[in-house]
Design a binder for these strands. Structure first.
Lengths: 156, 156
DNA sequence: TATTGTTATACTCTATAACTATA
DNA sequence: TATAGTTATAGAGTATAACAATA
């Protein structure tokens, strides 16, 4: 009964949303200051930096973005000469993505700050807490993946 | 070293962002189907439903929204006659918020679905997992609260 | 002067889907 | 026909700040 009457703002999802919103604000502030990038731009830049030569489709799959969003953000990075696009010689539909020299410089300069941010977050957590936390996230995500492919009333 | 070289998309924050994005999509779908409300509208409606007569400022504080966002979303609920606003008799700057009859009906009809969604999420978790998860969220949030009031380079 | 709340502005994000080109 | 990626459109969310009314 105490769970039944828990106030809405104590819901797991509310608290996740609050934390996520603050994490976003923090990362955005940091990226604007250090690299002049939006969070979405950094996501793409870092995905390319960590996986040079990968196809756009694969990066779309790894990130949460759909291909439309991805394409538009990618365009801003290409316009700023941070990313270089080349057509796959075998299959001309496929784009291979790499950082330009200046993109690489920006990536190399920014990544340590972002890693430090992750490390600072991890340092908050006790032994085993990170694994437990990620485990819960994975469980939830897997369930949601099944759920989101079904009609709205299937989950109550 | 293995942590130092963890790919960006394995970052804690990335995985939180993915899960949060999917939770949002699920809740939005559910709310659109069951109540014709946006997630932000539901947040405000449910905060008022659970705290009748509360001032707008207090609800703003509880939710993540700033007062501007809150005010605009609230307006849509008032326009739809789901929320009734009255001026505090003592202090005429303060608004007291309550659900209208139809707002209460919608709230009472929608809340069980949202509670069930929470219960379904909780049911995924083993004993102690929820507490551990929420504990980590709280730790992170407290740190972020301190951090966000400081300049960007303070957190590395 | 400070607080409560509204409004304006501009920008970003998201969702959906039509569209081009290649296969 | 199917896949890779682009573009269009509209709606929703976010950030900042100027503003009016009240205290």
């Amino acid at each position: 009964m105490s769970e039944e009457t828990a106030p809405v703002h104590r819901f797991l999802t509310y608290r996740l949303a609050r934390v996520q919103s603050k994490l976003n604000a923090q990362a955005s502030k940091l990226l604007r200051a250090k690299a002049g990038l939006s969070l979405a731009q950094w996501r793409i830049l870092s995905l390319i930096g960590g996986n040079p030569g990968t196809r756009a489709t694969d990066l779309t799959r790894i990130s949460t973005m759909d291909k439309g969003q991805f394409s538009r953000k990618l365009k801003t990075l290409v316009d700023d000469r941070l990313v270089v696009v080349s057509v796959d010689p075998q299959d001309h539909r496929i784009l291979r993505l790499r950082l330009s020299d200046s993109g690489q410089v920006l990536y190399d300069r920014t990544l340590p700050h972002m890693r430090k941010r992750q490390a600072d977050l991890k340092a908050l957590l006790g032994p085993g807490e990170e694994e437990a936390f990620l485990g819960v996230l994975d469980k939830i995500e897997q369930t949601l993946e099944r759920d989101l492919s079904r009609p709205a009333d299937a989950s109550g």
